[in-house]
């Protein structure tokens, strides 16, 4: 028996999402088939809005509903300090600490030579432009502490060096709740080198 076209089509669309195989896709589809109309329409509306209402902030390239995101538009924030992150989710993580009062710059990825991701695919040129134009005092590089993130940070630091701006890097150290015995050499070494006064 052939599936009704709309059903087959939705299964196909679901199956394209990450982490969803054909079985899960059909389960979700049949669930929606039986779900109340409001719920189904709310979902389709949410998806549509995601596409139609979300844009990238013209200044920091974070996801935003406005051409300039709330953080960049906020005069209370310190616009002379830019925190550079890989993904919009990283902005959320840093915001949750409540310790950072500057603005952000979202790269949308990291340098990945083997996947062929170079500086042109990231918002690196835009960052340099921003630093060159504005009254930027400090750029805090908050890419992930892995090799790709480190390489990206080093690359940006080199690009910014001639501009005379202060370039800092998120510190490396031991995680809260961790265990020295299991710490890797690189982290432990950094933790010793950059130990803090008590």
């Amino acid at each position: 028996m052939e599936l009704a076209k709309p059903v087959a089509r939705l299964i196909e669309e679901f199956a394209r999402l990450p982490g969803i195989g054909p079985k899960t896709a059909s389960r979700l589809t049949y669930y929606l088939l039986r779900a109340p109309a409001e719920q189904v329409l709310a979902l389709s509306d949410a998806i549509r809005q995601l596409r139609e209402r979300i844009v990238y902030c013209q200044v920091c390239y974070n996801i935003s509903e406005e051409p300039v995101c709330p953080i960049c538009a906020n005069p209370q924030r310190d616009h002379s300090q830019i925190c550079v992150v890989e993904e919009p989710l990283d902005v959320m993580a840093i915001e949750r600490t409540g310790e950072y009062h500057g603005v952000y710059h979202v790269l949308h990825g990291v340098l990945a030579p083997i996947e062929g991701v170079g500086p042109e695919q990231l918002k690196i040129g835009e960052l340099v432009q921003r630093v060159r134009q504005g009254e930027v005092r400090e750029v805090l590089l908050a890419t992930n502490p892995n090799l790709e993130g480190e390489a990206t940070a080093m690359y940006i630091a080199r690009l910014l060096a001639p501009l005379g701006v202060r370039v800092t890097r998120l510190a490396h150290g031991l995680p809260v709740g961790g265990d020295l015995e299991y710490a890797d050499e690189v982290t432990l070494r950094q933790a010793i080198l950059r130990r803090a006064e008590m």
Partner: peptide, 28 residues
């Protein structure tokens, strides 16, 4: 190999002593 591009990019800039401020020949 794809990573050659990255290698050339970095090497060019190292050999020129200092990295130029904008991506040389890049989008800008």
């Amino acid at each position: 190999p794809k990573s050659v591009q990255f290698l050339h990019l970095v090497r060019e800039r190292v050999n020129h002593g200092m990295m130029p401020a904008g991506p040389a020949g890049g989008p800008n």
